[in-house]
Design a protein around this nucleic acid. Sequence first.
DNA 1: ATGATTTGACCCGG
DNA 2: CCGGGTCAAATCAT
Length: 334
Amino acid sequence: MEEVMSFMMHAFELAKNLDLELPNMVNNTEILYSSIHEVEKAYSDAKERVMMMLSSSSSSQYNTTTTKGSGSFAQILSHDVFMQKKQHDQIMHAHSMDPLLLIQHPFDVSVFLENEMISGGDDAQMLRSKGKQLVDVQGKETPSSSSRPKQRKNDLEKRIEMFPAPQIGNTEMPPEDGFIWRKYGQKEILGRKYPRSYYRCTHQKLYLCPAKKQVQRLDNNPNIVEVTYRGEHICHKSLTAPSSYPPLPNLLANISASQTQTNISSEMWRPSMNLDLRDGDGSGGGASNLRFGVEYAVAEMADAMFNSGSSSGNSMELLFQPSEDKWEHDEKED
DNA sequence: ATGATTTGACCCGG
DNA sequence: CCGGGTCAAATCAT
């Protein structure tokens, strides 16, 4: 029960925060949206916990091996709510929060794109055509003409997204977005309360992946981090994935059917536990090390295991449900 | 030993 | 010249 209370308290806190920050948010719809969404989610989480409890209390003798079709009303209800919540979250994310989708379906979320896009589109191509020397294929710098082969800002397409920031635990943990990032710098920014962290794609060396991101906590609302993406993941395309994702509706259908993808932003909002994966000093470490696909499933599993405790088998049931239609398959090298 | 993070120095555009 | 972005050596983690 304390768990539920904790969830509720968190929801209250978020709502209160939203209330307080509302005047500041009216002209920033992204933040407003994000905040509302998180409040909604917090309550939804609390509700889910209650459902779980209902479920376990009314069918305690069935315990963990309950299989589908034999559940009590509460179980069904709980399952239903869980599904609804998941589906809802995923739809919301698909439309606004998921940078993968943002990259793959920029048309769908154009509201989040900045005006600073560079005509010409393809980053890699653009870099090449601009004669920028990055690194050569062997990974060595190609020294020529005194100046450093450094990409300058504005060379890459820029996309800004708002993510909820963790309030407890390692609050410096950047939002998980499905890619593996390596931190290469941190800087105090003039007029900003919090330092900005710089990340680049881990596969930069191997695959010349130009993707980068900056993570910056907002000063007027530290609960939100502004993530600026630059460049697209060519490594993602070549390594894993789907050079093109299924059309959005299909994707959503797949996700909600398979229940394997984790709601990304929810991972950092777990109110009653500290999900620090490493680095507890909060000194700016902790680049995200989860990757899309497998680890997400693992995270989801861990999430379900921790959160459901001994109360119900529903989550597990969802987790192990066959789902071959995942669109991220492997990380095979070529 | 290898890879990631930290952090001061450096570079460049405005 | 200043500030933002990046480099790279030192350090840390595994």
